[in-house]
Structures are given as structure tokens and as C-alpha cells.
Deep mutational scan, measured.
Amino acid sequence: MQGVVKVNSALNMRSGPGSNYGVIGTLRNNDKVEIIKEVDGAYEIRFNGKVGYASKSYITIVN
């Protein structure tokens, strides 16, 4: 499943599905991501070869 990031500035990509996990990357508006699955209000995603988590509130599914 594919998604597009929709933010005003940037969205943190984290090592786990919550803000208490470390930041492993930054997503920008209109970045395209692969959605692997939904976990606790976040999506597990793949972006630029990395797998991490981002809030589903800022990712629009575009299948």
C-alpha cells in the first residue's frame, strides 16, 4: 500500500510506533512512502530503504 506525507513542515520517522522512540529520519510534504502495516495509531513504513514508524494522521493512502 502506498501513502503520501501531508505536513506543513516535517514529520519524524521513528524506530517505534510512538513519540517516545528515537528519530531515524525525516519526512517532508509529498514524500511517497510504502505502508507496511498499522500499529497503535501509526504506520510502519518504508522510505529510502529504511523501515520505521510515522503518525498515520499525516499520511494519506493513495492506492
Rank of each mutant, 00 (worst) to 15 (best):
M1A: 10
M1Y: 11
M1S: 09
Q2E: 11
Q2F: 15
Q2A: 10
Q2T: 13
G3F: 03
G3C: 08
G3I: 03
G3A: 06
V4M: 09
V4P: 01
V4G: 01
V4N: 03
V4L: 10
V4E: 05
V5R: 01
V5M: 03
V5D: 01
V5Q: 01
V5K: 01
V5G: 04
V5E: 01
V5W: 01
V5H: 01
K6P: 01
K6A: 08
K6H: 12
K6E: 06
K6N: 11
K6D: 04
V7I: 10
N8P: 11
N8A: 13
N8D: 13
N8S: 13
S9W: 11
S9E: 12
S9Q: 12
A10D: 10
A10T: 14
L11A: 11
L11Q: 09
N12D: 14
N12E: 15
M13V: 15
M13P: 02
M13K: 01
M13D: 02
R14M: 11
R14S: 05
S15F: 05
S15Q: 07
S15C: 10
S15R: 08
S15K: 08
G16V: 04
G16R: 06
G16I: 03
P17M: 06
P17R: 04
P17W: 07
P17N: 06
P17H: 05
G18D: 10
G18A: 07
G18Q: 06
S19L: 14
S19P: 15
S19V: 12
S19A: 13
N20T: 09
N20C: 13
N20Q: 13
N20F: 10
N20L: 08
Y21P: 03
Y21E: 10
Y21C: 15
Y21Q: 07
Y21H: 10
Y21N: 08
G22W: 10
G22V: 14
G22P: 15
G22Q: 15
G22Y: 12
V23G: 03
V23P: 04
I24A: 03
I24L: 06
I24V: 11
I24N: 04
G25Y: 08
G25N: 06
G25C: 15
G25W: 08
T26S: 08
T26K: 12
L27C: 03
L27Q: 00
L27N: 00
L27S: 01
L27H: 00
L27M: 06
R28V: 10
R28G: 06
N29D: 09
N29P: 09
N29L: 08
N29F: 08
N29M: 08
N29I: 05
N30K: 08
D31I: 03
D31M: 05
D31G: 02
K32N: 08
K32G: 04
K32S: 09
V33K: 00
V33Y: 01
V33N: 00
V33E: 00
V33C: 05
V33D: 00
V33Q: 00
E34P: 01
E34F: 12
E34V: 11
E34D: 11
I35C: 03
I35T: 01
I35N: 00
I35V: 11
I35A: 01
I35W: 01
I36M: 09
I36R: 04
I36V: 09
I36W: 04
I36L: 13
K37C: 11
K37W: 06
K37R: 15
K37H: 08
K37D: 10
E38K: 03
E38Q: 07
E38I: 09
E38Y: 05
V39P: 01
V39A: 06
D40N: 13
D40E: 12
G41M: 08
G41N: 11
G41Q: 09
G41P: 02
A42D: 15
A42G: 06
Y43H: 00
Y43P: 00
E44V: 11
E44C: 13
I45A: 00
I45K: 00
I45C: 03
I45L: 07
R46F: 11
R46K: 11
R46L: 12
R46Q: 07
R46H: 08
F47M: 04
F47D: 00
F47L: 05
F47H: 09
N48V: 04
N48F: 07
N48D: 11
N48A: 10
N48L: 09
G49A: 05
G49D: 08
G49H: 06
G49S: 06
G49L: 04
G49E: 06
K50Q: 11
K50R: 10
K50P: 00
K50M: 13
V51C: 09
V51E: 06
V51Y: 07
V51K: 08
V51G: 04
G52Y: 04
G52L: 03
G52R: 01
G52H: 02
G52A: 05
G52M: 03
Y53L: 02
Y53C: 03
A54E: 01
A54L: 09
A54I: 13
S55M: 09
S55T: 10
S55K: 09
K56E: 03
K56N: 05
K56V: 09
K56F: 03
S57Y: 14
S57Q: 15
S57D: 15
Y58V: 06
Y58H: 12
Y58C: 14
Y58D: 09
I59T: 00
T60G: 06
T60P: 02
T60Y: 14
I61A: 05
I61V: 12
I61F: 06
V62M: 11
V62S: 09
V62I: 13
V62G: 07
V62N: 07
N63H: 13
N63F: 11
